[in-house]
């Protein structure tokens, strides 16, 4: 019997205290059903304004064979292009891999939007001539960029709740309808992906296998 079950019901691995985590998202496109749960959960948790989509499900080949859905939050890139291009250093990467934006520093130039491969940076509407306002994005549910303001009213208003500090994972992945969107330490995610690949007969049906090993992989 293949061992794959919903990982939530598994005990966590051995204590690896002291090894820094590398926090990641992973979207299993063989699982994402475009239900929009992640999008709504994000709004519910962080009180995100109507015009901001910190996470969005994208569907390709809609209504035809090959129809595929991908839920796309900020992917928390290890070498984040947004961080590289930010002219005022408002963006930075935390020790655990979370990419933060400091809204007190951000000037809303939108340069990060050019750099981001996933369309993660968001700019509030509602002012004349579509003025951008400062950038908003998925926080990996880690609240604001500074420790001083943790759990403050200001942090909630600008960034939303700080689940990571409470030891909880991002809300979108926590409630994902089919466990398509997975969040956590990259190593744990790799284990989940391996288990699923094994259960599926390991026919290279993992998202990205085609790119890595050529078409037909």
């Amino acid at each position: 019997m293949a061992r794959i079950t919903i990982p939530s019901r598994k005990a966590s691995g051995p204590d690896k205290k002291g090894v820094p985590a590398r926090l990641k998202f992973y979207v299993d496109v063989k699982r994402c059903i475009e239900c929009g749960g992640c999008e709504v959960a994000c709004k519910n948790e962080h009180n995100v304004p109507r015009d901001i989509a910190r996470i969005r499900v994208v569907t390709v080949n809609e209504g035809q064979p090959g129809e595929t859905n991908v839920s796309i939050p900020c992917m928390q890139c290890s070498k984040a292009p947004c961080v590289s291009v930010c002219p005022v250093d408002a963006l930075f990467t935390r020790e655990d891999g979370i990419v933060h934006v400091n809204k007190d520093t951000c000037i809303g130039c939108g340069y990060c939007l050019y750099a981001c491969p996933f369309g993660a940076p968001q700019f509030p509407k509602g002012s004349p001539f579509g003025a951008r306002g400062v950038m908003d994005k998925c926080t990996y549910c880690a609240g604001g960029p500074t420790e001083e303001g943790a759990h403050s009213e200001k942090e909630f208003r600008l960034y939303g709740r700080n689940r990571i500090a409470e030891g909880k994972l991002p809300m979108c992945a926590s409630i994902c309808a089919t466990k398509a969107l997975v969040a956590g330490d990259a190593e744990e995610i790799a284990n989940v992906v391996r288990q699923r690949a094994a259960a599926r007969g390991s026919q290279g049906r993992v998202w990205g296998a085609g790119t890595a090993y050529g078409p037909g992989a």
Partner: peptide, 16 residues
Amino acid sequence: FLGAAGLGIGLASVGA
């Protein structure tokens, strides 16, 4: 929390 992240974040989507 960050000190314990290796453990805590083992949650991968899930961990209780």
